[in-house]
């Protein structure tokens, strides 16, 4: 399953970050998005817009394209 499969309010654990863009990946790592962390989808913007997630008390907004590369369980 990937992050975009989660509905608003659903929680999961990150299993892998298969993001190809190195800058995005580094940013997410710096902000605390690591394998094994709990993630919760807070809201999803319309028309394929970005998603807002919470990781370790931190709110992060990323695009759906990248969220689809984050495996969760």
């Amino acid at each position: 399953m990937v992050l975009t499969d989660l509905r608003q309010g659903q929680k999961a654990v990150i299993t892998n970050l298969a993001i190809t863009n190195e800058v995005v990946k580094q940013r997410l790592l710096h902000m605390g998005m690591h394998e094994g962390e709990k993630v919760c989808v807070k809201c999803v913007m319309p028309f394929g817009g970005p998603v807002m997630v919470e990781v370790d008390g931190q709110y992060i907004c990323l695009r759906r394209k990248e969220a689809a590369c984050i495996g969760v369980r």
């Binding site: 863009n21 800058v23 995005v24 940013r27 997410l28 902000m31 970005p50 807002m52 931190q58 709110y59 992060i60 907004c61 990323l62 695009r63 990248e66």
Partner: peptide, 11 residues
């Protein structure tokens, strides 16, 4: 060049 977007949302 591709466009990217990641942002931290403060409380």
């Amino acid at each position: 060049e591709s466009s990217i977007f990641v942002i931290e949302l403060p409380p």
